[in-house]
Amino acid sequence: MLKELSLFERLEADSSRAYSTGIDHQSLIGSVKSNLQQMLNVREGSVSPLPDYGMPDFNDLVYEFPDAIYQLQVAIRQFLLRYEPRIDEVLVSYIPDSTQPLQLKYQVEVSLKSASEASGTFQFETVITGSGQAFVRAA
């Protein structure tokens, strides 16, 4: 059952747990979502060995509106595909919200590599606040 966990989750797991080749898809999806939220909250350039790891600083993009909306959309897709090895396809769509002008909302659809078509795709929304913090929630 540990196969669906991220590396850090496996390192923290109780070493007495038995390994299995089966995959619990709900645990896998939960683990991927948790990792994606952590990833989306890392600023580009903050991990010195991987200078391209992270999201562009939202404050740097403020002056490039409305192009910043598309730039973040592309950045989210490329970043997730490059650094989350358990996914193989990402579709990111901007969701306009005139009631929250200092936030950008995106719907993200993710396909998992190791799953069948029906159980291997999930969606979530990510909201990027004016301070650059990202929140992941069910779509």
Rank of each mutant, 00 (worst) to 15 (best):
M1V: 07
L2C: 00
E4M: 06
L5Y: 08
S6K: 01
S6A: 10
S6E: 11
L7H: 08
L7C: 03
E9K: 09
L11V: 03
E12K: 03
E12R: 03
A13V: 02
A13P: 01
S15T: 01
S16R: 09
Y19G: 10
S20T: 07
T21H: 05
G22E: 11
G22C: 06
G22Q: 08
H25T: 10
I29P: 02
G30M: 00
N35C: 06
N35Y: 12
L36F: 09
Q38I: 11
L40Q: 07
V47N: 12
S48P: 14
L50P: 09
P51R: 09
D52Y: 12
D52E: 15
Y53H: 03
Y53D: 05
M55W: 06
M55D: 06
M55A: 02
P56T: 05
P56Q: 03
P56D: 01
F58R: 09
N59L: 13
L61H: 05
L61M: 15
V62R: 11
Y63H: 14
E64C: 06
F65A: 11
A68T: 01
A68G: 06
I69N: 06
Q71S: 14
Q71W: 09
L72V: 09
V74T: 13
V74F: 11
R77S: 14
R77L: 05
Q78H: 11
L80N: 06
L81M: 12
R82C: 04
R82P: 00
R82W: 05
Y83R: 00
Y83V: 00
E84G: 02
P85S: 10
I87P: 00
D88Y: 07
D88H: 13
D88F: 10
L91N: 15
Y94N: 06
I95M: 11
P96C: 04
D97I: 02
S98D: 08
P101A: 03
L102I: 00
Q103R: 09
Q103E: 15
K105S: 13
K105V: 15
Y106W: 10
E109P: 05
S111F: 05
S114T: 10
A118E: 14
S119C: 02
T121D: 02
E125L: 14
T126R: 02
V127M: 07
G132A: 02
V136I: 13
V136W: 08
R137D: 06
R137Q: 10
A138W: 04
A138K: 08
A139Q: 06
